[in-house]
Design a protein around this nucleic acid. Structure first.
Lengths: 195, 195
DNA sequence: ATGTTACCGTAACGCCTGTTACGAATGGAG
DNA sequence: CTCCATTCGTAACAGGCGTTACGGTAACAT
């Protein structure tokens, strides 16, 4: 195993430790020492991999984007029809299970941290723009005869709904079980004539 | 002016300072000193009004709930029809202007802080439950012939959508202007047959 | 006018933070 | 085996944090 592969793997381990701390202890306890403890190393290793705390957070944020994008692309290419692709992609962007729920928690953590961080907010906006364009593309494929305006408005409604559903379920999974989320998604897709 | 009124007014001033810092500097810089500076006083006053930092945050969170509820009730009672009430209430829960956008930022800040705070998450869930019941009641009034299940599912879709729209607009107001938000809300209400 | 009480600013405390410097260990090269 | 470069743990630093103790000041009662 090469050294560069080692470095990259350690970077991923540390980024996942960032997610873990962010999901379990929140933004206020997201310290370099807490990340090191979650990764099973010391602060020395962390500060040798990343020049400072912000760089660590930015890398974790970037990797989260990459991981979710790869999962979405796999779901999209595995779907039988355009409408099935739209539904599958939207469903995983809510919080249908514990893993996606934790992702939603981490997501809101990064969002809250981005308020005062120019680079984090830039990354967030870029990510959101790509996500919006993806759902617009999927919506257009699912309803080929719609006008662009209708596609854009509907796609915005869909991503807003799944985003909000993820936030609700992240904070109170018992009150918003997966079955309710799925029923709500199907009801909305039906109302829009996309199911 | 009585002393108790003074104390209460100072508590409100400090809570609004908490919101201000949370909206402008983010959760990481939400310190007692920053709140005191935003309120135009010293840390001594803050610590004489509240036993500790958490109590200050809890009071600010509680007051935010109260303020938004009063605004919603005013909108609800001022509406001409049940459907107009539903629409007005949903619209203000997105981010149609700068004031509501800042509220959305503060909201996500409190949500992120609640991850590791039992009392904050309890308050958040209680608030969400009341909000959900309110929109269910408004939806039932707007569609009197619907079955309870259909009302519940639709209301969930509506609150999820406005919540998500608020989050998107809070982080990137330029990409999600008020006109787009309003058009999307109307499109969704139309799709559900509620407009 | 004087004593008393409540109020709040000042300054300090200990703790925890991000960051840095240094030394030990490890592992390949000659 | 020896040397050297790289890697990473240890320990310390300054700064900022929440919290506390103390002193001054203003308002009210007598």
């Amino acid at each position: 195993m090469s050294r560069t592969a080692d470095r990259s793997a350690q970077g991923e381990t540390l980024s996942r430790a960032v997610w873990s701390v962010l999901a379990e202890q929140g933004l206020e306890r997201l310290t370099v020492r807490a990340v090191a403890a979650a990764a099973g190393c010391t602060t020395g290793l962390v500060m040798h991999r990343f020049p400072n705390r912000r760089a660590l957070l930015l890398h974790a944020r970037h990797l989260l984007h990459q991981v979710t994008r790869e999962r979405v692309e796999a779901l999209e290419s595995a779907a039988a029809t355009p409408r099935a692709a739209l539904r599958a992609v939207l469903q995983q962007s809510m919080a249908p299970d514990e893993a996606t729920r934790q992702e939603a928690v981490v997501w809101t953590g990064f969002l809250a941290a981005a308020v005062a961080d120019e680079e984090l907010i830039t990354e967030h906006r870029r990510n959101n723009r790509l996500w919006r364009e993806r759902v617009e593309r999927l919506t257009a494929a699912a309803a080929p005869d719609w006008a662009p305006d209708r596609v854009a408005t509907t796609a915005l409604a869909l991503i807003a709904m799944t985003e909000g559903m993820g936030a609700y379920a992240a904070a109170d999974p018992a009150a918003f079980p997966a079955a309710d989320q799925e029923r709500m998604l199907d009801a909305t897709l039906t109302a829009y004539g996309l199911l």
